[in-house]
Amino acid sequence: MSSPMNHTRFSGAQRLLHWTMAAGIVAMLFIGVGMLSTVAPSYVPLVATHKTLGVALFALVLVRLVLRLVLGAPPLPASLPPLMRLGAVLSHWGLYGLMIVMPLLGWAMLSAAAYPVVLFGHFRLPPILPQSDSLHTLLWGAHRWLAFAFFALILLHVAAALFHALVRRDGVFEAMSPLPSGKPERPA
């Protein structure tokens, strides 16, 4: 990223989006595996929440992607070993990719099963694919396995964030910290 950004923290809007979406995505993953594990009455509102939140997160990630492309990201500290730098770049674009792909897979998967896509408030989305057994199988499998990959990647992301915050103390965690810095921004 040849970003014009020289500051040490993401913008307030980016941090707000990051933490809002973080809560939403973690909720989505837990709702997803939870709803598939139950035949209880909660199944119906869980599915409705999963669809509604999924669409909301898709809208948010598009905004976030624009902000990222326009505002960029603070540079990683020069002291970061090359392997960790590569891991950071790859995992971040992996997370973006999953944030964009997962809602589309879900929507396409429901379309390929000829399920009406009804959200809370009875808002409905049109199908984006015709009914197809083979497409449904493919999309459903992808949605499921990428969800597990998403959770694993988030765990890695959390581990890395904590590693930066607690071990390296190199300002990377503070760059996305939800709290205002409270003091003048330090140089990286």
């Binding site: 595996v33 939870g34 594990s37």
Partner: peptide, 13 residues
């Protein structure tokens, strides 16, 4: 736990 992997008695679909 949420996925039911730790709950062999849960009535899953």
């Amino acid at each position: 736990y949420t996925a039911g992997w730790l709950s062999p008695e849960r009535l899953t679909p």
